[in-house]
Amino acid sequence: MIYEGVLAKVYLGAVLPVLEVLSGEDPAASSYAGQWTGRIRFAVGLSGPRCDVVFRDSRVKVEPGARGPSDIYLFFPTAAMLNALFSGRGPGFPIPLKGFTRLKGLLVFSRLAKHMETVLNTDAAPEKLRARLTLDILARALAIISRNDPEMRLLAEKVHGTVRLGIKDGHAVQVDFTGGEPKSVTGAGPSPDLLLQFATDDLFLQVSQDKVDVMAQACLLNVVFQGDLHLGQVVNIFLDRVSEYLPPKEVAA
């Protein structure tokens, strides 16, 4: 079962933040970002999740919480409406409380979001960048889902320790399950309790799309699976849950 409120938090807290790296690393994304300067606020309900997407100097910054004035204020009465917009499942038109006339900002965001989707789901972008963005989304989504999804929260309260997911000689992320409030960190943090390391970006991307047998790959020594394997079994359940919330998309390159 997918909880719409949790999915909205995943979109705002895990998916949108990769625009920061994308606009910094990908020339096309940077070019889109450079076409407008301003702040777009996403808000779900009166007390739901919210964040600001800030366009400045051809870069994007995503600020959680949303404070101060914004140029465009997109208000989604329900989480389902925001999710419909991000998943492409429906129109998901928000109520523009502010900035209805600043259409250019919305247009630029829309182009950038579409580009992000293409980068994440096709071979159009370099594997290294795709792997990095996917790892970032995965770690943040894993932490958000295990904090907020009721069934996953129960499970998260029973595990302790830090898991590192990464590419050999490449990008890594960590999720800390200590204290029942899982937190994600981009980059390799302190020594993890569980290491899940993939030999190549390509292998990680295939695993993230459920295209390869990760257990077999571990035995072929293409995946290092070391440390607290009990935590690993639980993380595996969380990762399956992430792919229920964020199923791979079929996107034309």
Binding site: D213, M215, A218, C219, L221, Q226
Partner: peptide, 19 residues
């Protein structure tokens, strides 16, 4: 691994020892 899921599955999987 080409013909069996996990190659060796269940409690016999080498993943639980140290590949």
């Amino acid at each position: 691994a080409r013909v069996m899921p996990q190659g060796i599955y269940g409690h016999f999987t080498p993943v639980f020892t140290v590949p």
